[in-house]
Simulated assay, not measured.
Amino acid sequence: MKKLSAVSLLLCLMLGCAQADESPSPAPNPTESIKRLDEALAVGDVVFIHVAPLPFRKVSEATQSWVNHVGIVTDVSGAEPVIAESAFPFSRTTVLSRFVARSKGGRVAVARLGQGLSETQRQALVRASERRMGILYDTGFNLKSRREFCSRFVREVLIDATGIAVGEPESFRTLLARNPDTRLGFWRVWYFGNIPWDRQTVTPASLYHSDKLQRVFDGFAS
């Protein structure tokens, strides 16, 4: 892989890079219209997609999963559900159609806590997401930084609102050792030659596979 400068990598993060997508190919799944998906969503639903920028494709490669970005539903009272997300350059809200439009081929999965949310928990979830709006994106994917990244954002919002932790924190060493075929060249450049092996992080794939969440849709939105 051609090495990129730090500036080029940040441009990739914002705009995407014209390279072949190295993530696992999506398996055949059902297709649903955005409108039908709209009608099925509830506050607290976790929405997974696959976005194009190079760093996120490398996350897919390292975690051996099509999932590389995640947000959480905070409002279903308007014309479209609203997704709260940590994204570059800062955390924000996005309507569902725009969120899904960023996903390759419209691939999307929706999961929710098995017991659902009470009205009190829904209100707490909205407040938890609002407290995290406008926080700068953490390009170091550090679970203990003052910034945010997508899977940490969703995990912490759910913890604040319900006390339930989805996804498993792990060190970069553990994460990358699980897939020995991961090409480390990108990550060495990304971390200026020094991968923080003992840094704790949490990945979108970890949330996707959490036994605390039940998938209610996993397919393509048209």
Rank of each mutant, 00 (worst) to 15 (best):
L4C: 11
A6S: 12
L9Q: 15
L9P: 07
L9R: 14
L9K: 12
L15M: 10
Q19T: 13
A20I: 07
A20M: 08
P24A: 10
S25K: 10
P28H: 05
T31D: 05
I34F: 13
L37T: 10
L41R: 09
V43P: 03
V46L: 04
V46A: 05
F56C: 05
K58I: 04
E61T: 12
E61I: 10
N68S: 08
T74Y: 05
D75S: 06
D75M: 05
V76T: 13
G78R: 03
P81H: 08
V82Q: 00
E85Q: 14
E85V: 14
A87C: 12
F90I: 04
S91R: 04
R92D: 14
T93M: 11
R98C: 10
A109V: 09
V110D: 10
A111I: 04
R112T: 10
G114N: 11
Q121K: 05
A124H: 08
L125T: 00
L125M: 00
V126S: 03
S129H: 01
M133P: 00
M133T: 00
R147V: 00
C150A: 01
R155W: 03
R155P: 07
V157A: 15
L158A: 10
T162P: 09
V166T: 12
P169T: 01
S171P: 03
W187N: 14
R188A: 12
N194D: 13
N194I: 08
R199T: 07
Q200N: 08
V202S: 12
V202D: 12
V202N: 12
S206G: 15
S206L: 05
L207H: 02
H209W: 07
S210C: 06
K212Y: 02
L213E: 09
F217R: 00
G219S: 13
G219D: 15
G219V: 14
F220D: 12
A221Q: 03
S222Q: 01
